[in-house]
């Protein structure tokens, strides 16, 4: 049996975007949530300061 040098020779090469795309989506969700929360916070604070 050949050793493919990937994943300890136990699996064939991983050639899909499956795992990485979900990882990307997760951290982009968190980043998007943070940006949105920051924008909403600014939106609430600014009118008070000007009012």
């Amino acid at each position: 049996m050949y050793n493919n040098g990937a994943a300890g020779g136990g699996t064939l090469a991983v050639t899909g975007m499956g795992a990485s795309i979900w990882f990307d989506a997760m951290w982009m969700f968190l980043a998007g949530f943070a940006i949105l929360a920051a924008l909403m916070a600014v939106g609430r604070i600014m009118p008070r300061r000007h009012g």
Binding site: G10, A13, G16, M17
Partner: peptide, 25 residues
């Protein structure tokens, strides 16, 4: 984990592998 597809074959063969489904693995 069907690693056996890389095992030696008679003659001069070429095995191509990729993932299924298209956007998964």
């Amino acid at each position: 984990d069907a690693h056996h597809v890389l095992d030696p074959l008679p003659g001069r063969k070429l095995t191509l592998t990729t993932c299924w489904p298209k956007y998964g693995s």
